[in-house]
Design a protein around this nucleic acid. Sequence first.
DNA 1: CTGTTAGCGCTTTCAA
DNA 2: TTGAAAGCGCTAACAG
Lengths: 339, 339
Amino acid sequence: MNGARTKQNITAQDVARKAGVSRAVVSRALSNNGSISPDTRARVLQVAEELGYQVNFLAQGLNRRRSHLIGVIVSHISDPFRSSLLDGLLREIQRHGFQALVTEIHNEQELAETLRNFTQFRVSGVIVTSGKPPEALVNQCVQQQIPVVGINRQPDIPGVDYVCSDNVAGAVLAAEQLVKGGCRRFGWLNNNNSTWAGRMRGEAFILALQQRGVDTLQDLVMLIATEEGYEGGFQAAVQKTEGIQGIFCANAQLACGFLDGMRQRGKNAPDDFQLIGFDNTPQTAQYSYQLTTLHQDVSEISRQALAHLLARTRNPAHPSQISWVNVSLIHRRTSPSTQ
Amino acid sequence: MNGARTKQNITAQDVARKAGVSRAVVSRALSNNGSISPDTRARVLQVAEELGYQVNFLAQGLNRRRSHLIGVIVSHISDPFRSSLLDGLLREIQRHGFQALVTEIHNEQELAETLRNFTQFRVSGVIVTSGKPPEALVNQCVQQQIPVVGINRQPDIPGVDYVCSDNVAGAVLAAEQLVKGGCRRFGWLNNNNSTWAGRMRGEAFILALQQRGVDTLQDLVMLIATEEGYEGGFQAAVQKTEGIQGIFCANAQLACGFLDGMRQRGKNAPDDFQLIGFDNTPQTAQYSYQLTTLHQDVSEISRQALAHLLARTRNPAHPSQISWVNVSLIHRRTSPSTQ
DNA sequence: CTGTTAGCGCTTTCAA
DNA sequence: TTGAAAGCGCTAACAG
């Protein structure tokens, strides 16, 4: 109908015209970048407001060679711990004024494609919470000054920062608790294709037991879940768990599944065995589980991740950093009180 | 060191030069848009491959006035149903070659800001799974030809498409099951500040009971959870549940919490009462719960959502559509078998 | 079929 | 402090 009102989008040009200045000034007013008199600035902002002007992020990013996007790579989003972590990351990303580009991957090839996609959007950073990115691709990011941070990943790529929960400390706490709880025979439950964090927990658990005088060859049973998550734990309970008094699980889902598997066979914790999991997902706190578990501080992990991202943005040549985030033992019903 | 190799990014210009064609031809080769001879096309693609050329999505989007981004608005990501839904949506979004811009909101104001942000990125579509977007903002999207689809939201904004689980059918199935199970006194558990979907389930449940001859004034107790999720359900169990034989819960978290709350008081399903939840989250299937529940087909919901988005992209003037997605009763242990 | 040209909307020197 | 002008990298209309 009416030409002017039908205009698709208000541009900086429009604002400039109405404020009686040049486009450059509008840009300065909005980005407080480059000098501008307070008066003009105020006037421009006023006009921008009136017109409902919104910066076109695509144009801005094209110019600045960087969008205000942060790419996040996840997998198994519906897993309780994974979704908590994503929750924490999104909070932190948004708190810093970025927008999250979230991609769920199902295999390593998708990871590679995703990483490429992210660079095509000129993201300001990449957070990897799953999979092992090919070093070549990561190097491309590094070269393009795109900071990459891995969460709970093996810290093995130069130029990448990592933040990991302190798995060793967690495993030690678990071993300590079980030994104090009077256990003599132990079990360690993990997936057959475990994550690096899971393996680390296992190795540290074994070592911690040995240091407490346990003959792990004799008195430690390695239980292996062939399926992911709860199901894997549930099925693992049919294995030779006879005589095991204290069990440590690589994650919360395995632990809940295992507990239920044992219950189905008429055994329960803490009467028949003691059980400690990792992750402290909401479910572990529920009345029907009340699992003793190691708490991963998702908020702190997220905070560290963003901190690394920002630090590396400022100084891309910074040497790789790795932060270990504290874990704590949440004592609940599946292990006896030791005092 | 060496000028050429240090080049920040390979552009279409570089490919054009090396292939001995113009930039336009490169564009055509990659977008199969506009005519080009098979030979040149092949040659250009070859060169692009060699050079490792990647389209700059920011520039592309700026030109096309549309990025290949889809904005998704979520909340409470760590809630099991919400994360399953997000999982489904991401799958579908990626399957169609888009990237997801995910924002978690914590109040209606953030929703508004997010919507504005999305438009600044020239998203190809917006999916709202939480909150009630201000009509004015949505209209701006519509005007800018950005399709908006709401999931499990009250379908009340013109120009927006909706996809909802068939809450009424679900409530009817629940009522039917409980009545067949021999219940005479009923309960309905919902949050005090419930979602539209929750309220709809409640109303339909009441109606369905009445149609089956239940005097709902006399024999239906309205239980109200003052907290969200599991905790809310757990605490609701301390209310006057005496004499209630069949309870229907607005969602899975409430149901699990309620079941646990009752267990703590020494009552269990299905012996002391029957219980049906909504959502069929993984947790409801676990050994310790085995909750009878109404399954929401997250994959189908996601498929429909994307279908609406694409349809409206083709024809923005299309009248608002609303799809009701089937729900099904998953019969487990908290209600007796009726045959 | 291919090249030229004119933008998309913003930022950023460089002069004035 | 402000404006003019030159891009950022890509697309699309228009000639040829």
